[in-house]
Every structure is written in C-alpha cells, then in structure tokens.
Design a protein around this nucleic acid. Structure first.
Lengths: 344, 344
DNA sequence: GTGAAAGCGCTAACAT
DNA sequence: ATGTTAGCGCTTTCAC
C-alpha cells in the first residue's frame, strides 16, 4: 500500500511549515491566495485526505457509535439495526456493528474493543442473563459506572444504569393469549427458544395472566422450551399426541414458521384445528400460507429511539443525571393463521 | 460523561513519569514489583483502558475493516456479512459495516469516511453502474490508485484495480434455464429487479445461451424488468394473459416468493402449470409452499473469501502486484417449485 | 502572511 | 529501576 500523504509531505514539497499547509487546506484567510490555491491543487491531485484517527485523538470524539446485537439472521434485530443506521446517518454518525452471535465470550471481546475510545457510545442488546453477573456483566457495569453513553434495548439488564428501550413483552404475551381465547382456543402451548431470557419469561407471564383471568389452570407441560439443539418436531409431536392443543404461540418468527410446517404435515388444518401466533413480523410470516398472525415489536422504531436517546446523551455533554426507560408497545398483526374474532 | 482516566492521571497520582506507568501496566520487567503491582491495582480499580485511538495513530493501523453493502434486508448480503464477520473475528479484526441502502450518495459519503484512516481496508459491493464513472466511481478509482486494500464482491466494477470475488452469474442463468428446459418448460419469463446491474444482465445472457442451444428464439417481452416502484402483479398479469408461460426465473428471493403468491392466486398450479426458480437461497424460499427451487450464491463463502483476500493483502505489506479475481460457482437447490427431471 | 510550539494518549529507544 | 525524548498527524494559539 502506498504511503498515505500527510500535511508534512505537502509542507516539505512546498518548503513551508505544516501549520501553513493545514491552514491552506482548511481555507484559512490567513494564507495568501496564491500559495493557498497551489497547495490545495497539489493536495487534491495527490488525493490528500486528513487522517481521521489523528483528528479523533485531537477531538476526543469519533462520531461513531457501536452497536452490539446477538444475531444478524433474526429479522427483528436487522430492523433495529436499520432504524439505528437511519438516524445515526442523519445525525452525522457512523455505526460500527458487532454481532455477538449469542456468544457471551464474543460479546465481552466486542465490548472490550468498543469501550476504549473507538466509539462515542454504545447500543446493545446483551446476551447476558441476570445470573451471569460475574466476569461479564461486570464489564457492562463498569462501563455504566464510567458513564460511557450507552443504551440497552430488548434484552436489557435491570441493574445496569443506562438508558433503555424495551418492548412490553408482558403485555404482548397477554394480548396474544387473549386473542387465542377470544377466538375460541382453549389449550394453548408456547414454543420458546428463549426461555432462558427475561423477555421470554415475561411473555409467558403475560400468557399466565390471560389464562388466570379466564380461570384456566396453567399447565407447565404446555411450555415447550427449546435448547440450542433440541428437535422441535420431536418435542411438538409429543405434546400434540398427549394434549388437545388448539393454539400455539411461538416466541420467534422462525419457530412460528417451523411449527406451522410441522403441524400441517401432520394433517392439522390452520387455523381450523390449531391457531398459530408468532413473534417478530418479518418477511417470512407474510409469505407462508396461511399467512401468520404475528406480534410486531416495531424493530425499526426501537432502533430509531435507541439512536436518538444515545446521540442526545452524547451531544448533551451536560450530563442529565437521570436515565430514560422507554417502553414500546407491540401490535398484533392479524392474518390467516388465527380464527375470526366473534362479533361483539 | 466521566473524564476517561489516562496514563498521565495515574502518573500524577503516583508522582512518577508517564512511561513508568506505561511500562508497569504492560507488565514490563523494568519496573519494581512493588510499584508495579500498586499501579496495576490502581489502574484496575479505576477502570483504566488504553486509548485505542492513540494506539491506532501510533501503529498506523486500526485492526478494523469497512464493509459496504447495498441492502441489509437482502439475505444474500446478510450471509456475506456473516461470512466476513466470522473470519475477520478469527483473525483479530473488527468490522465497521455500512449500509448504502442502494443510494449512490450514501455510498459516496460512506467511502469518504472510510478512506481516511479509520479502517485498514474495505470490502464493498458497489451500487455504481458502469455508466456513472463521474463523481463517484472516481472515488473508488482514486482509492484503488492509492492502493488502499480493497476487495469488491458481487457487483464489481471491472476497471477498478483491486481484488474481486464474483459469482458466476452467467452460468447460473444458463443452468437455471437449462433446468427449466430439461423439465419440459418451453416459455420461460424472467422477473428482474436488477436489470440495471451487470450481474442481472449476465444472468439474462446465460438464459439466452441456453435458449439458443435449444434453438428457441429469444423474446424480449419475456424479460420483466422491475423498477423501484413497479407493480409486479400488474406486469406479470399482462404477460401471463398474453403468453403461454410455463417457467419463471426470478432474479432475487423476494421476487420469487411474490411471483409464486401471485400465480397461485390466479389459479395456476406450481410446478404443474408453471415452474419457478429464484435466486438467493434464504429462509423464505425454504418455508413457502411449495418450497422454491433456488440458485444459491453461497453468500457466507463469498464473505469468507473476501475477508481472507483482504486480510492477506493487509498483512502482507510487501505488495504483491497482481490482483486476484475469484469466481464462485452457484448451486441449484432443487425443491418443489420445479418439475422432476426425466430419467436419462 | 507564515511559522513555532504545545498537546491529544500512547510507546519505545535511549538516557540516567 | 525510573525518567526523558521523540513522534504518530493534526489543529490551534501565539509570535514574528
């Protein structure tokens, strides 16, 4: 790679001082027009570009924010990323995005890199569960301690002091369940690949509340918690044989689609025999048939909120003490995988 | 935000010089054990982290690569990104990813930011078409000129000197078409939202070659080029009424799925009446029914190749003159939207 | 109009 | 064992 041209190089070319060149390039009035235009032409011809890193050091700011998301193959996170990108861009910031790939170790490494001056702030959905305070959660706390501008979204950790944008997962679970009940479903199973997360459990709590209101007993066996390698088909078949399921709530998009594929293959009709509602209103759910009724978490909006919150904090160096926690409501996008609501 | 603690702060705390602190923190043997451990404890307690920006300036390297992709909602690019992330991570690099969102202006801005020392190299799929040399393509050329390590993939620009990873789009178009022909289809339409790109046109060329081999006349009317706002349903309906279509090749995943939805709604059976093949083997095509036969471009592999090529060049500062161009073959993933191949 | 000097945070070669 | 110096590339006073 060709050595990058610097002010110094130009200075020695013209036998003037570095500061003169700097001023010329920045179009300062202090420099004579002749010299200035000659220097600027030379700089342009030789593709001079000011070294960003040096400027960053000088300004103690990089105009860059770091974004840490667990999984780029999940449409929800892609939408959030998209939302962040939009407003960051609008407000003159770049984003450096890191995929933690559900791995705690990778997330730690990433945070280590980021928390070190390369970004002005961080937006993160952490994979840390509340139990894993040691080692890692500690890093997050330290960062909050040091008041590095940070906003957590979706999978937040309560005891970390920072701005937060969260989804009303409890209500989402409650409303989806109520919808099942209102359309005549009685035995509703939940398929959850995220039962280890707080948000996953909140949705289940919402589900419980809806059941309770209708005086339906909660049955632990209807909660199908999937591990990384668990075979959904197997687990589902078992419950299907055992119980008289007529509704399934899947806590992410891909599970919803898979559930439908499986139950259709086993001869059930959707929604006549079994209704399905999924989480995350992505492309998949729209195009399968029947099209899936989904809970939308408004990913892009969440991304935008995160970015605005973060940039406000970065730009208002006058630290406002208090941290904001924004709760975003979900919407139920009703399509064909659920039955009609009876007329009121 | 709390002021970040620096070596200087620690030095004045202990009333020693900055370099002593630096050495202590880097565990140099030159420093006495007592002082060293006291300094290190203090540093740790106060969350000292070396300033990355200063180090970058010193080392003239950021261990970061920039990735510019046109569209994060396209599964192919997501897969490429994923592939890049994997090897970058493995080889100790971070990635800063920028979504140009199909906008030339945004791409320019992004490149401007990146080409300025904030990254050690760039991986890009450019939205520039060959015609737009002025203004923007120029930036790309300048960068190549300056020998900034760079690799272009998928949508490459021929006259930019850099490493490249491309898909064999011509052959992909040829083979997909041949597959239609071999399974008895005679009148094959193409739905292309990317007819303005080179890769889009290459696929059509491959299609033409396959037709020619079977002595079938090429009919311009069967190429359905979609603009940003064109209504696929309308355009498709028109051709469907006019011609006796029995095969449709869609040049991206979402179009393939939409095409299927439309023709099923109009009462055609897939693949009995009309066969469909799409490009980009993502999640969608697998779960629609019938499952779609797709051309896989092996996105993750392409990403990995790009990253390896780029990092090799970054690390081998001894500039090898020649640039590599790697061509990746596609695979046809046969599913249910095409008829059976007759026995040989 | 032009230049010298300081400093952003850090390391490393070179004193002491 | 500890300190001094120089320098990465740049901007910004302040002198001349």
């Amino acid at each position: 790679m060709k050595k990058k041209i610097t002010l110094k190089d130009i200075a020695s070319e013209f036998k003037v001082s570095i500061s003169t060149v700097s001023k010329a390039i920045n179009d300062s009035h202090e420099i004579s027009d002749g010299l200035k235009s000659r220097i600027r032409k030379y700089a342009k011809d030789n593709h001079y570009r000011p070294n960003k890193v040096a400027l960053n050091l000088l300004n103690k700011s990089t105009k860059t924010i770091g974004v840490v998301i667990p999984n780029i193959l999940n449409y929800f996170f892609v939408q959030v990323l998209y939302g962040i990108e939009q407003v960051a861009n609008e407000r003159g910031f770049s984003i450096i995005s890191c995929i933690s790939n559900q791995s705690l170790e990778k997330e730690s490494k990433t945070l280590d890199v980021l928390s070190t001056g390369s970004v002005d702030g961080i937006i993160i959905s952490s994979v840390v569960s509340e139990s894993q305070i040691e080692g890692h959660g500690k890093l997050l706390m330290e960062m909050a301690d040091d008041q590095i501008p940070m906003v957590m979204f979706d999978r937040v950790i309560e005891w970390v002091d920072c701005d937060k944008v969260i989804v009303d997962d409890f209500e989402a679970g409650y409303r989806a369940t109520k919808y099942f009940l209102d359309t005549g479903c009685k035995t509703i199973a939940i398929v959850t690949p995220i039962n280890h997360t707080k948000i996953g459990r909140l949705r289940v709590e919402g589900y419980k509340k809806a059941l309770k209101e209708r005086k339906i007993d909660f049955n632990e066996k209807l909660i199908l918690a999937l591990g990384r390698k668990d075979d959904l088909e197997l687990i589902l078949s078992f419950v299907l044989n055992d119980k008289n399921i007529d509704g399934i709530l899947a806590l992410d998009e891909i599970s919803a689609v898979k559930v439908m594929t499986i139950i259709k293959a086993r001869g059930y009709r959707v929604p006549k025999d079994i209704s399905i509602i999924g989480f995350t209103n992505g492309q998949l759910s729209k195009y399968v048939s029947p099209a899936l009724t989904m809970v939308s978490q408004h990913g892009a909006y969440i991304g935008e909120s995160c970015a605005n919150l973060l940039l406000d904090r970065i730009e208002n160096k006058n630290e406002q003490e208090s941290f904001n926690s924004k709760v975003v409501k979900t919407s139920l996008i009703v399509r064909e995988s659920t039955r009609e609501l009876p007329m009121a």
